[in-house]
């Protein structure tokens, strides 16, 4: 039995070892593994694409999957940089340290989280209290009529609550800020990416969903957040000024203080060149930048 396992495990280990060359090795071509937040994946890909021009010897392999995925990969030591749209939990930092990984956090930008509605939905503003009634555990809002709304095309009146899978940073951030750390209701439809949320809400009059502002399309309505009359529209400017209440930091984590190729890449991301790409993708930069 043991021998059989060894036979299977040995080639697998060799494969893993081969596919991960030490980042920062001089002269040779470096591949940096970058994984995590679905919110950041578009901009991370744009960065990787643009960085080819800056340093042709460094290739960056970008994968999405959710903040939890990236952080788990960092803890398991399979990536060089993890993208996250939420901070690492204490428990995650502890298990990283137990694996000999010392996570270092970089704030690379800010993102406004938009609450999406079908374009036919007449709602003008939504307060945190109303959102908690819809999304929160124990919340009693299950139909649009409870909010005094009659949504055309939604004959049952039922609110189709669209959320994200539980390893998503967007999910965790929404939980922390809008629900005040309380749990989500059971029975939400948990989508596997920001784009899936937008697609479903766009095609479902009864639906409500949330995602990064950068994923908004012209076929979807963005709710104004706050009490009626004093609400704030989700905008990049609002996220920079802090006026919009659900804007969060976008983070990247490295294992230990970055060195070599990883350091050069992180420095470039935080430079004007990197930050302008972020702004161009619909996110708010980490610091004031001047873009052409």
């Amino acid at each position: 039995m043991k021998k059989l396992l060894l036979l299977v495990a040995a080639p697998a280990l060799v494969l893993v070892a081969c596919s991960r060359p030490e980042p920062g090795a001089k002269g040779s071509r470096v591949v940096l593994q970058n994984k995590g937040s679905d919110t950041l994946v578009n901009v991370a890909q744009a960065w990787a694409e643009a960085y080819k021009e800056v340093d042709p010897n460094t290739a960056i392999a970008v994968t999405g999957g959710g903040s939890g995925t990236g952080i788990s990969a960092l803890i398991n030591g399979t990536v060089d940089i993890a993208n996250a749209s939420r901070e690492m939990k204490d428990q995650e930092i502890a298990s990283a340290k137990a694996n000999g990984v010392e996570p270092v956090e970089f704030v690379v930008g800010y993102d406004a989280l938009a609450v999406f509605l079908h374009p036919d939905n007449p709602a003008t503003s939504l307060s945190f209290e109303q959102l908690a009634g819809i999304y929160g555990d124990g919340g009693e809002t299950v139909s649009w009529s409870q909010l005094g709304l009659d949504v055309p095309g939604c004959s049952s009146g039922e609110i189709v609550v669209v959320s994200r899978q539980n390893n998503s940073g967007t999910y965790a951030y929404f939980q922390e800020v809008v629900l005040g750390g309380k749990d989500f209701k059971l029975g939400t439809r948990d989508m596997h990416g920001s784009k899936d949320v937008v697609d479903l809400v766009e095609n479902t009059p009864c639906a409500i969903g949330y995602s990064g502002l950068a994923y908004a399309t012209e076929h979807i309505k963005k709710a104004c957040i706050g009490e009626a009359g004093a609400c704030v529209e989700p905008t990049v400017e609002g996220a920079i000024s802090g006026e919009y209440p659900i804007a969060r930091s976008l983070l990247m984590y490295t294992s230990g203080q970055p060195t070599g190729g990883t350091k050069a890449y992180m420095d470039w991301i935080l430079s004007d060149a990197g930050q302008c790409i972020l702004l161009d993708k619909g996110y708010a930069p980490a610091a004031k930048v001047s873009c052409k």
Partner: peptide, 9 residues
């Protein structure tokens, strides 16, 4: 949906 995204152990 969840296994690929949890820390091992």
């Amino acid at each position: 949906a969840e296994l690929g995204e949890t820390a091992v152990g």
